[in-house]
């Protein structure tokens, strides 16, 4: 189990310091695929950097640490302190753009064996790599090529191969398929899913695509303005979200056969420089009350295994029904919903 303890991640800029991830407390069970979603700028990539242990100027950890729940070769527990020594051994990373993450002037096989983990046994490793990439649907000669000779999909398969070859406990993937076309995206994600089933790694997957999350992940983490607002099993979360933001994210997902107008998310998230008091989502929330604007809701376990940071988590099902009935978000009678919410408490 990976344990995140009160993580505060801070960027130092010329304007001063800004917290891009604030107060994240989480437990991620082993061998689980966790999806991370939220609007851009909410801190997903920063959280991934913290998890990977890639902390260095301008990013720093103002508080907290990650405990990975396994020990290193010397028998010491692996935490944020020493995770760097485990890069591409126990934890690996699939970058966003396969197009540009490989060195254009080096053969792929040479880029496969310049990890510290392969020092001194390159020949032996390459022989294994050759048969491993075949399993991933690539011809063994693919690793003799230069990156420009492979298609985008093949290159991303190479990235997946690198990330899985050493059988790490944890794989981080930050929007790993955004640059690819939809069909290729899907095949890459299914490949990752297959490999995960076989090796039992924990995968953290950042994606904008709620459809992908629904199909691939077992747990979901929803972020808003540097905070985690909901964390639950994917099935539960899609069926019955407990945070209005999650509901609106899901509701903006088009479903086949449904030609009702989708509601985009009205408004935009607050700037990290000017956080509103109270709940950060309140200015855009149809359920927001004076209490929300005053008091910041903590991430609480409302139902077993289902965490939400909303004072009115219990009213979200009502809001969902209203949304599904069809009216535009602007037409929802907020007063009525609020009255219901008050009654629930």
């Amino acid at each position: 189990m990976i344990r995140l303890e009160n993580i505060v991640a801070t960027y130092t800029t010329h304007r001063g310091q800004v917290h891009a991830v604030e107060g994240v407390n989480l437990e991620i069970p082993d061998s689980t695929i966790v999806g991370i979603a939220g609007e851009s700028g909410c801190g997903k990539s920063t959280l991934m950097k913290v998890l990977y242990g890639d902390i260095g100027f301008p990013l720093s950890l103002s508080s907290g640490k990650v405990d990975y729940g396994f020990v290193n070769d010397r028998g010491e527990p692996v935490t944020t302190e020493n995770i760097r020594d485990e890069w591409f051994r126990r934890i690996s990373y699939i970058p966003q753009s396969s197009m540009s993450s490989l060195n254009p002037v080096m053969r792929i096989r040479d880029q496969f064996v310049d990890f510290p983990a392969t020092a001194g046994r390159k020949k032996e490793v390459l022989a294994q790599v050759r048969s491993f990439v075949q399993k991933l649907g690539l011809p063994p000669q693919a690793i003799d090529a230069y990156p420009h000779q492979l298609s985008g999909g093949m290159r991303q398969r190479i990235m997946v191969a690198m990330a899985t070859f050493f059988q790490p406990e944890v794989i981080l993937a930050d929007e790993p398929t955004t640059a690819l076309d939809v069909v290729v995206q899907k095949s890459i994600l299914l490949l990752l899913l297959d490999l995960q089933k076989e090796m039992g790694n924990t995968i953290l997957l950042v994606s904008h695509d709620m459809g992908v999350h629904y199909q691939i992940t077992r747990k979901m983490l929803i972020m808003y303005a540097a905070k985690v607002v909901e964390y639950a099993d994917t099935d539960d979360l899609f069926q019955q979200p407990l945070h209005p933001y999650t509901l609106m994210l899901i509701h903006s997902l088009p479903t086949i056969g449904d030609d009702r107008a989708r509601h985009g998310l009205p408004g935009s998230p607050p700037s990290l420089w000017e956080m509103p008091q109270g709940c950060r989502f309140a200015p855009r929330c149809p359920l927001a009350t004076a209490r929300c604007r005053r008091e910041e809701p903590p991430l609480k376990e409302h139902v077993r295994g289902r965490f939400s940071a909303c004072h009115y988590a219990n009213s979200v099902p009502e809001l969902k029904k209203t949304l599904e009935a069809g009216p535009k978000l602007s037409e929802i009678n907020v007063m009525e919903l609020m009255a219901e919410a008050e009654r629930d408490i």
Partner: peptide
Amino acid sequence: EDSYVQFARLKGTTDRTRMVNYVFRN
């Protein structure tokens, strides 16, 4: 700052490897 050098850094390669094989050769 190119992605392939940044990725090489995340791979845990040494500075020497990155400077010579990744930065200089390009």
